[in-house]
Design a protein around this nucleic acid. Sequence first.
DNA 1: GTTTTAATACGAAAAATTTCGTATTATTAA
DNA 2: TTAATAATACGAAATTTTTCGTATTAAAAC
Lengths: 132, 132
Amino acid sequence: MSNPSHSKPTEAELEILQVLWQHGPSTVRFVNEQLSRQKEVGYTTTLKLMQIMAEKRLVKRNEEQRTHVYEADASEEETQQRLLDRFLDTAFRGSAMKLVMQALGNRSTSPEELTQIRNLLDQIEGEKRGFE
Amino acid sequence: MSNPSHSKPTEAELEILQVLWQHGPSTVRFVNEQLSRQKEVGYTTTLKLMQIMAEKRLVKRNEEQRTHVYEADASEEETQQRLLDRFLDTAFRGSAMKLVMQALGNRSTSPEELTQIRNLLDQIEGEKRGFE
DNA sequence: GTTTTAATACGAAAAATTTCGTATTATTAA
DNA sequence: TTAATAATACGAAATTTTTCGTATTAAAAC
């Protein structure tokens, strides 16, 4: 939310962000190795993508060392929120509830998670009533 | 779920599907008019997209009349589920709960909707315990 | 010091998606 | 019947995204 200049990452860019979020600041080599676990991808392909992402300010780049280190610029949560907003509009016509119902419905969610969601519901309803 | 041949619709295709789901079987002219409310788009652009969608079997086409009538092949719910699965993987690394929390958190949801979600939670937990 | 290795830069090809122009043809209106 | 209107077909241009080859250079190994 803080930086409105964040353009929507493409699919390939998002895969790279996932690696950065999961493992923290990383080199191109490392990111490429991680991606290679899922699919075949050349080193220079990953490099080019990350260079583009640096231009777009999706990632920050530390150039102090000969081997650059990249870091996601926005937090995973921030980005997820943006992606979610967009996804909600395009796929669910804005109905958060429908999305939630489908996400919970066709899927195994642990009792702990269900409890957490209940707590969140309590909290939301509490706020609505003016308590807190 | 019924037809595994459903390829993932692109963004532009999804916009067209939205119109078809919302209004039922429609002509290209009608769909184009609806899309035009949101953004400038030429008639033949919409036509071409819908022709491609027919090839991909994303829509069915009734050619009995000179003016063809298009209809979404898969239901909105089916398609949403597929999109959601994919989105969950790419954006939330598979954590349905995280997605739900974010969807409910930063957003206004009505008391009625919250109640519905509670009911769904009850239902899910009930099933888990072997009741129903 | 020279060679080998491994990194970035960068252009451009390849692939996927979107847009649109033009030709053709059926239907409607005059 | 003829002219105007409006629909589809289709190729291809334009745009966006992804992939990769080659050149260059710094660092490490010998």
